[in-house]
Amino acid sequence: MRRTAFITIPALACTLLVSVACAAALGPTGISPGSLLSLPNAWTIIWDVRLPRVIAAALVGCALAVAGTAMQGLFRNPMADPHIIGTSSGGALGATIAIVLFAGAGRPVFAFAGAMAATFAVYFISRKRGKIPVETLLLSGIALSTLLAALLSFLMYTAGRSLHQIMFWLMGGLWNVSWDDVIVALPILVGCAGIYLFARDVNILSLSEEDATHLGVNVEGLKRILLVLSALVAGIAVAVAGSIGFIGLITPHVMRLIVGPDHRLLFPAAALAGAILLVWSDTLTRTFTNDMPVGIITACFGAPFFIYLLRSRMKT
């Protein structure tokens, strides 16, 4: 455990609170504390439009970061992330089915089911003699994501939905978020708390599966629980905000550099950092870029980071 760890978590928590406050104040209509009193609809903008959106962004960012951290530990593979291995595509397809066939009823449930099916499919496709090599994990994730995205586009297209809606599921965005969506997103906190209970087990599992068995970890049971919980939080995140990439990849890496590999610290640090990252990404897009999908922003700094990781792995 590193000395910086104890400062990092409170510092991140404070940063998140400040970020939420700033993000609520920032936007196309600048609202200063003074104008809250003078402008009649200022409260409405803050309370009904911005605050649910900022809180949803924080929850979704937290969900993606925690799911990414859990998957990296679980697969013993630092390239894992809900977007890359197809969990998000599965969730997006599930949500689309709910929209097209059931007029949106049970959207989070369908997203969760889709996310879980996709996650387990990639897990079983890429597993070879108890190991999950980087190459097969990435390739099977890409193959499955491509297939799922095609199915999603097909469903949307034949149902006569606009390109804008297809784009939402493929790239993610928070432009229609209301308080109802925040309520849908709340189980993310339960899922993350559930994952946190297994932090010590993930530490041990990140050595090797056999070693974890020797140390008293029920490896198969743990993997199932973690995959279900990761798919749960990632699936809900997708149901609320579409499939936003790279938050789950970058956050655990950066936090591991700061707090070390111990998941008892890494999970909370990644949760807070993921929330901060998405709150600011979303604020950026709605303030300066006329509300383009936030996935474009995260991909813009996420993809180069991904390439950097791949290159540095090749060197070793």
Binding site: M1, R76, P78, R200, D201, N203, I204, S206, L207, S208, E210, D211, H214, L215, G216, V217, R256, G260, P261, D262
Partner: peptide
């Protein structure tokens, strides 16, 4: 029963104490 393996490649950057403390997990 405790097992000492031949050698293990540890992917993440744990300290010696972290690794030994994992023995207390059960």
């Amino acid at each position: 029963v405790a097992v000492v393996p031949q050698d293990i490649s540890i992917g993440f950057d744990y300290t010696v104490r972290d690794i030994v403390m994992m023995g207390r997990h059960p």
